[in-house]
Design a binder for these strands. Structure first.
Lengths: 211, 211
DNA sequence: TAGCGTCCCTAACGCTGTTAGAGGAGGGGG
DNA sequence: CCCCCTCCTCTAACAGCGTTAGGGACGCTA
């Protein structure tokens, strides 16, 4: 069985999950595949385009077209799609960083078209629908990157940061106990993402109602 | 005049704007400062912590406390702050990527405290106010990163991507003329960011009204 | 059998972040 | 005056990086 480009991309996805974007080197990847490093250049033009393929694979599931069920609220439908996208980016280490460096791929067009159709069908102006798709995407990327960034750093920190002085920062200090237990957990980050997403969706509802 | 850490950080900020994050190497930075590369390690622990200082400098202006003017709408105030933050990240090449890798720094606490106070003063529950601050921050980061990512790539692209087939992608095809002229410009990205931000703010208004 | 495309190899280039260890300049105390 | 000590900078080097050049073994086709 000879090496294929798909196998290279598979191994790259695995390696990314194992060592993160900074640790993903072609030499290491080649070693995992039992092959020398320059061999990879036969299957892949470049490290950058390899990462493009990795990004495409990470999001592949998200490009499935899932039509709005009859009677289903478009907002619920949109929320579920966005959450699934967020989960896909959070599930794999540094996935958000890899995806962020990418041009939108051809494979995403059907899904984008369908979201556009649904939002326009709900009553949004086409240009607003397009802006909304991108804005939600930006929120997904930003939330996922922030999640990974927070996750990668704790080693460099010498202990926890000092608690905020209640005299100077009363609100921050008051929030501390509420945040302490769940801060940093994936559930917390997903809840945070949902909060922003729900704000956007509520805003969409308003802009639909006032047209 | 001997070298100081501030001077190193200044030069790093300049170099970042010139060559981007990928081109920012300690050797190149040292050369710009007329110094050998290992010398930098006297002033800075690490490349990573150097970038931390760079991030802090890039956002320094944003931590200024600007209180809500009497009679000013909290939403307008919040919007202006967020837009200023977005502009700061968009103005400097790869600024968003550098900032995204960072822990929140001590210097940001007064500003966060003040935003919390304003949102709570407007009637938001403290926990919701905190989530909102972070959600807006995530939207800022995501939008800015997407802006830079799009800006860095066009060299690798062989021409424009093919126009979407109107038969298969009617909505995308219909949008093409409207997007063609302004796509990619900083104004377009700021407008896109404002769209998402306004959705969130409209959502906030709703959640305030229904309490 | 000859040729050719496919797939992999070794060797090497110039770059990277980082460490080890030496040395010069300048000020303070004996 | 001289010595020491601290600050700051240096050269040399290490392991690792992405990438290119060029060669060699395999199997299919003519």
């Amino acid at each position: 069985m000879t090496l294929t480009r798909d196998a290279v991309v598979d191994a790259a996805v695995d390696l990314l999950g194992e060592v993160g974007l900074e640790g993903l080197s072609l030499r290491r990847l080649a070693r995992d595949l039992g092959v020398s490093a320059p061999t990879l250049y036969w299957h892949v033009a470049d490290k950058r385009t390899l990462l493009d393929h990795v990004a495409e694979r990470l999001l592949a599931d998200q490009w499935r077209v899932i039509p709005l069920a009859p009677g289903e609220d478009w907002a619920d439908w949109l929320r579920e799609r966005a959450i699934a996208q967020f989960r896909a980016l959070v599930a794999h280490r540094d996935a958000a960083l890899v995806v962020a460096g990418n041009r939108p791929t051809e494979a995403s067009l059907p899904a984008v078209e369908q979201v556009l159709a649904t939002l326009i069908g709900a009553g949004l102006a086409p240009v607003d629908a397009f802006s909304t798709v991108q804005a939600v995407g930006n929120l997904v990327i930003g939330s996922a990157i922030e999640y990974h960034a927070e996750r990668e750093r704790p080693a460099s920190d010498h202990g926890r940061p000092a608690p905020p002085d209640p005299q100077v920062y009363p609100h921050l200090a008051a929030l501390r106990p509420a945040l302490a237990e769940r801060a940093g957990t994936p559930e917390d980050h997903e809840a945070l993402f949902r909060h922003g997403l729900d704000l956007m969706i509520a805003g969409l509802r308003v802009s639909l109602a006032t047209r």
